[in-house]
């Protein structure tokens, strides 16, 4: 079972705002799922490789060449910015505490 402190820590890592009154429900629901998936520990997986791709693909490379972006797509991406100045994406300051 996850404690409130655990959940708040995970929520912060996940950048999710979780209201205090939601904590018991999340704790119960996430807890019951973790209890269910714990059955995986019954299986012996000593020496078993991890599956990455069914057909065994790995390290798929493309040719390293610059392809210019479609101006129409570019305009649509800019239009979708929630906050912008001209064609520039407006981002909140990363370092907000400037008291020092």
């Amino acid at each position: 079972m996850l404690t409130d402190t655990d959940l708040l820590h995970i929520a912060k890592l996940a950048r999710l705002r979780v209201e205090p009154e939601e904590l018991p429900r999340y704790s119960e629901q996430v807890g019951s799922i973790l209890e269910y998936v714990a059955k995986l520990q019954e299986l012996d997986t000593e020496g078993v490789p991890e599956l990455a791709h069914g057909a065994g693909l790995s390290n798929v490379f493309r040719v390293d060449e610059v392809i210019s972006s479609d101006p129409d797509v570019k305009a649509r991406i800019i239009a979708a910015f929630p906050h912008k100045e001209g064609d520039l994406l407006e981002v909140p300051a990363v370092f907000s505490d400037r008291t020092e």
């Binding site: 998936v37 995986l40 520990q41 299986l43 997986t45 078993v48 490789p49 991890e50 599956l51 990455a52």
Partner: peptide
């Protein structure tokens, strides 16, 4: 990691 091994099984 455990779950990825179970995928192989």
């Amino acid at each position: 990691k455990k779950a990825l091994k179970v995928r192989t099984l």
